[in-house]
Write a protein that binds this DNA or RNA. Sequence first.
DNA 1: TCCATGTGTACTAGTGAACAC
DNA 2: TGTGTTCACTAGTACACATGG
Lengths: 343, 343
Amino acid sequence: MGRPTIADIAERVGVSKGAVSFALNGRPGVGEATRARILQMAKEMNWRPHSAARALGGARAEAVGLVIARPASTLGVEPFFAQLLSGLQAGLSAQSVAMHLLIVEDVEAETEIYRDWASAHRVDGFIVVDLKVRDPRIEVLEELGVPTVVLGGPGRHGSLSSVWADDREAMLSIVEYLAALGHRRIAHVAGLPAFRHTQRRMRALRDSTRRLALADAVSVATDFSDSEGAAATRTLLSRGTRPTAIVYDSDVMALAGLGVAGEMGVRVPDELSIVAFDDSVLTRIAHPAITALSRDTFALGGQVAEVMLALIADPEARQDLKTATPRLVVRRSTAAPGTWQDD
Amino acid sequence: MGRPTIADIAERVGVSKGAVSFALNGRPGVGEATRARILQMAKEMNWRPHSAARALGGARAEAVGLVIARPASTLGVEPFFAQLLSGLQAGLSAQSVAMHLLIVEDVEAETEIYRDWASAHRVDGFIVVDLKVRDPRIEVLEELGVPTVVLGGPGRHGSLSSVWADDREAMLSIVEYLAALGHRRIAHVAGLPAFRHTQRRMRALRDSTRRLALADAVSVATDFSDSEGAAATRTLLSRGTRPTAIVYDSDVMALAGLGVAGEMGVRVPDELSIVAFDDSVLTRIAHPAITALSRDTFALGGQVAEVMLALIADPEARQDLKTATPRLVVRRSTAAPGTWQDD
DNA sequence: TCCATGTGTACTAGTGAACAC
DNA sequence: TGTGTTCACTAGTACACATGG
């Protein structure tokens, strides 16, 4: 005989399936003595609920879905993702909610999975990352009616809950700091232009140009990889009038940029200041250590988990949570531009 | 009306449920014309299979389980884990197999989850990491009869499949390299002593003492955290006769050790050689860059995924895969011990 | 009478509600 | 009224059997 079912228990105790179901779920409708006998027998037979059978009846899946449309390798390379994942896990595992994780090729495949998992009731909700400028996933998820938390914003996530950091404000704080140091030619090695937060950062820099009297404020788009980050840096440093400061959209790219500067004989921070838009062990141990915007991604994951769990418990409890504005951690990679600088 | 079921399709097309089931699963027993009409209607109604209902009948869950008994925060800190996870994903997602992930408190909770998920048929198999010296999980999983791949070995994983690296051989290669450089006092900042691979590394070092005429070969156990790695280094460097080389069981600890050396005024590599048992971006960008054992953890994850998928396809296809022996990548953190050294 | 094509019903594990003692 | 039974229901699979040419 395989695993015991409530029918097996019912037979052995000499009651009906219904009585066993009531007893095991702590509902009234069965006497204390019988309940005790049933519980005892269930324990003896090592009975466990069968989630598939429960799911048929519409019960919780005790899992949330995370589908990511990126090459799998980036997961391991980007500290941001690893941190987010562990923060999510920390929040979810407190309630023993598992995470159903899948990497797919593109956004089309991603929405297909949403439809599959939603109609099969494999998960109780979804977490959406990498919010795009015009994101087709939003309306699909709204249509499906499954609790969803979007990581990113503000706005453009329709009726779905969201957790977001103010990328505009963050970029402004970096640029203001650099301007205060005396920098006037600031470059920006950005991430994927399709991402909404990339756009917000680029616009924030552009908008600062006049207000802070910057001579130059160029954004270069990349795919977030260290190699494109390095290439962008090489291009920027090869120009006639170099930037005196570069802001990188990720710690990995900042590190790659630091390497390129060294290789080209450009001294950091004397000739070039470097700021990373993400803090991690990478920026701390670089040499020189890199000034970075500290975002506590682990905590971010925890907040997303919290909003998710609240939403599952009460689908009406829509939230729009703005996370604490990240603070700039100043390290050795930034300084006033060298006096030999013209401008 | 909610999501369409095969009964709905059957009604509209005017056939029985059975016919629809046959048609949708591409099995014989239904004519081509009828099959086409059914498929057409299914598409029109946007029908999708309900995995819970299928699971009741004993079908695949299309997911593998990964349960980890560690504080969630370590997931984000240790590059090893992030890399492994992404490698796993890369391998699994090729067949659209998802990963069911959960962090738990301890090994007892972990085995409970195994029992739960196995009897509820939530996953098609399990991946076990952090193999312990006497691991209670092994027999539980054998008893459950669910396809399982153990990451770690050799041996002590019973009848389960395994993928393992030869930690003994790896440690010997490091120690031999250091001995050849002239080091005679080699210390080892180890990981959790409960882990099987930690024990194998410690023993390998001890066994080398006589053969390589080492004056000293001490292992200090830690919990893999950077703080304990730093503390262990501080202790080792405060002793009367310092080691001239330290081997760290992880890149994070090696980096922490490098920091401590700097802080104590011990020059690396002139006065102290440092080797990490794990390679990653951390060791590459450290200053000086750290000599490390390169293990390609991403590929390791891919191999585990492959063995897992093969095992699910054919439960008899037990494998015991030894991965390529990692090679030592020599960087700037190792050199011959300073001439001012006695002995 | 053979065979392709379908039908009817039982079965998976558990929930829930009407009903009976 | 409290205690417990019976049966339908969830979505899909599987198999014995029926029907027709």
